[in-house]
């Protein structure tokens, strides 16, 4: 127990079952305020169910959780007054215009009629959807829809935001915009619980990560800690002369660790427990007179972390399929 600022989220032993399926089998979470905290896991791991419990949408069958100091069951309204949801968790209304959606939420949150309109216009402008403000949301592009979604969740700036799969199906440019917005929110003091199956996204944004699989937290820590826990990275080398690769492979195998050859005929990677051993390997190559075009020490990716922790790869749906689901 620490005596620091109260936790933004504190969950103990959360359980949720549906019939004989256990969606969440006892999850503990401790999220400090003012950070992006990633909840990472494959489809069906229990991420969404966990977040729905934290956001007061469903009641836990067992365990308890406090969000911003309030119990999610007995003080649900106090929780609701400080959090907002995005994505699959809480959708905007496709049969209204973007502007109407924002005005509606403004009114429901207690803004005056004029106040709600002014806020809607401010957000539409800031999120680059002013030109489509009067169009029905079902005609929006995927990226526009996602921005409106986030705009809708900051009509009144929340102290905690549940950001659910915010970039699924987005092109890299739109994805970067969403990430910038998330960073801006954190800079203003909002805590973000980021739910994602993209390891890169968690790596980019999150200060802390909980990896969830089959309804339990199987690992927790900073992205760097998680990577370190899996151990070795790799020494990646590209030779000046592809002809000498077999020779270099034999040498690195001896000096560093198991070698894999890359598709690039001059490239190879040696598994490497620490940077000292990598330095030795590079030194040996130089001494033998094998020219090096470039070399780098790779940390294991979170993909590898995930594979190592769960024994199966992260299942990432093809982004194209998600895009096609966007309303036409």
């Amino acid at each position: 127990m620490t005596l620091h600022a109260p936790l933004a989220i504190e969950a103990t032993g959360l359980v949720k079952t549906y019939g004989d399926t256990t969606a969440v089998a006892g999850i503990d979470l401790a999220v400090p305020p003012g950070v992006v905290y990633g909840v990472l896991g494959p489809n069906g791991a229990g991420k969404t169910t966990t977040i729905r419990m934290l956001a007061t949408l469903i009641r836990p069958d067992a365990g308890s959780a406090r969000v911003l100091g309030h119990d999610v069951v007995t003080e649900a309204d106090a929780v609701r007054a400080q959090v907002s949801l995005t994505g699959q968790l809480a959708s905007v209304d496709e049969e209204l215009t973007g502007r109407e959606n924002l005005v509606l939420l403004g009114r429901l949150l207690g803004l005056s009629r004029a106040g709600a309109r002014a806020r809607a216009d401010e957000l539409l402008e800031a999120f680059g959807i002013a030109a489509a403000a009067g169009k029905l949301v079902k005609h929006y592009s995927g990226g526009m829809r996602r921005r409106l979604d986030i705009a809708a969740s900051i009509v009144v700036t929340p102290r905690l935001m549940f950001l659910d799969e915010p970039t699924t199906g987005l092109d890299p440019r739109s994805r970067n915009h969403v990430w910038e917005i998330a960073r801006a929110l954190v800079a203003e003091g909002t805590t973000i619980l980021l739910c994602t199956q993209y390891l890169e996204e968690a790596d980019q944004l999150a200060d802390g990560i909980a990896v969830i699989d089959r309804g339990t937290v199987i690992a927790e820590g900073t992205p760097a800690q998680l990577k370190a826990s899996v151990g070795s990275g790799g020494l990646r080398v590209r030779l000046l002369d592809a002809e000498r690769r077999p020779e270099a492979a034999a040498l690195l195998e001896r000096a560093v660790g198991p070698v894999t050859l890359e598709a690039d005929p001059a490239g190879l990677t040696a598994q490497c427990p620490d940077s000292a051993r990598a330095a030795t390997g590079v030194g040996e190559l130089a001494r033998t007179g094998i020219g090096i075009a470039e070399f780098a020490l790779d940390q294991p990716s979170l993909d590898e972390v995930f594979l190592a922790l769960t024994g199966h790869a992260a299942e990432v749906p093809p982004p194209a399929a998600t895009l096609e689901e966007q309303p036409s």
Partner: peptide, 25 residues
């Protein structure tokens, strides 16, 4: 300088900073 179809991070940041929670309706 912002493209018309993109979020303007500075404006988003101002929008985030500018609200106080109104009383419940």
């Amino acid at each position: 300088t912002t493209a018309p179809d993109a979020a303007d991070t500075a404006a988003v940041r101002r929008a985030i900073a500018s609200t106080a929670r109104p009383p419940r309706p």
